[in-house]
């Protein structure tokens, strides 16, 4: 499959008044055509910084790229000027943010906010943009678009605002859509609707999606492949099935163990991961998860493990996969919905 996006060894640092925070440290991943890649991790793991780096929306200073490469359709984005990036943002790559309550301009009608990128990127006139805006609102499932297009964001509900955000993001049929926690701020019932909508539209407009989330439930629902981030690094990556049914990194186990599951026995408790994420202004020398890892070995503290390739699609950075380390079975809590695992 053709690669839309190739991120290689990306490093993004921030200068704070205390110290340099190494938010993203050597992250590499690809996004293929028409696929959804989920980047999963807890807050502070670097997932949002990674996504905003692709758009080059990191404020600089205090942020800075400290090496690496981001290739979009074969072109290096880090070499592009701000002017060239403007032509890519909103047209080739779009973005949806977490909180629909704050991500729309409160003093501008929704219609005008959709029209802006159409006028900028498609050279449409105001009336053409309005017509296209109506179609888009219809497409994202907003009832009565004729009336809604002239309303302000505060007249929309939370779910409708996120639909409007999606309409803005998809206005120019982008090749890549970055959705940064698009459902976190929404009610559970609305969450499912928004995810369904994104999946539907992905088929219709043939876009690739990077889905940033901390919620593995969302991942199972919407993604093809998963990258698990921790401490500014990708610790494990694989297809959804591989990550859910054959996880190999203790942090992935922890994430799966802390996911509520209806199939799970009532007696089994949700497992929290003890401890706090590492301080990225002074990152650990070895594996970032070592301090919280129940299986940590001496080597973990001093050496960052390489990726062990488990299949064509699955890679994991954990010393447990070295043949010299003791055999460790994933804990019961990390096993998803037992039944499917038995079938295999």
């Amino acid at each position: 499959m053709k690669k839309v996006l190739e991120v290689k060894d990306l490093n993004v640092f921030f200068d704070t008044y205390k110290a340099e925070v190494q938010a993203v440290r050597g992250v590499s991943f690809d996004v293929h055509e028409k696929e959804t890649l989920a980047i999963v991790g807890e807050s502070g793991s670097g997932k949002s910084v990674t996504s905003q780096s692709i758009m080059k929306l990191i404020p600089m200073p205090p942020g800075k790229f400290a090496g690496g490469s981001i290739k979009f359709n074969g072109e290096e984005l880090l070499d592009k000027s701000e002017k060239q990036m403007e032509d890519i943002r909103g047209k080739e790559i779009s973005m949806i943010f977490q909180d629909p309550m704050t991500s729309l301009n409160p003093t501008m009608t929704v219609g005008k906010q959709i029209a802006e990128s159409l006028i900028k990127h498609q050279n449409m006139s105001k009336s053409q943009a309005r017509k296209r805006g109506l179609e888009l609102l219809e497409l994202v499932g907003i009832p009565n678009p004729d009336a809604r297009i002239d309303q302000y964001p505060h007249e929309y509900s939370g779910g409708m605002r996120q639909r409007a955000m999606i309409a803005i993001a998809l206005a120019c049929n982008p090749k890549l859509l970055i959705a940064d926690e698009p459902t976190t701020a929404l009610d559970v019932t609305i969450q499912a609707q928004i995810l369904d909508l994104m999946r539907d539209l992905q088929d219709k407009v043939n876009t690739s999606i990077i889905l940033i989330t901390h919620d593995l439930g969302v991942v199972a629902n919407a993604a093809h492949r998963v990258a698990v981030m921790y401490g500014g690094k990708i610790v494990e990556t694989g297809t959804v099935d591989e990550i859910f049914y054959n996880p190999t990194h203790p942090y992935t186990w922890g994430l799966l163990g802390s996911m509520p599951d209806l199939d799970r026995d009532g007696e089994e408790e949700l497992q929290a991961i003890p401890g706090t994420p590492p301080d990225l202004s002074d990152p650990p020398k070895g594996c970032p998860f070592a301090a919280r890892c129940p299986y940590a070995m001496k080597v973990c503290e001093n050496h960052m493990p390489d990726y062990f390739e488990l299949s064509d699609t699955q890679k994991s950075a954990c010393w447990l996969l070295d043949e010299r380390s003791p055999k460790v079975e994933p804990p019961e809590s990390a096993k998803v919905g037992g039944s499917k695992r038995d079938e295999e």
């Binding site: 060894d9 401890g275 001496k298 973990c300 390489d306 070295d322």
Partner: peptide, 30 residues
């Protein structure tokens, strides 16, 4: 990875022993 490629063979067998943590460290606030 940004750090120099490390030779897995160079790491000694004893390094793969479980890490013994000082319990008091676990609760230490950084």
């Amino acid at each position: 990875m940004s750090q120099p490629e490390l030779n897995r063979a160079e790491i000694e067998q004893t390094d793969f022993e479980p890490l013994v943590r000082d319990e008091s460290d676990a609760e230490k606030i950084s």
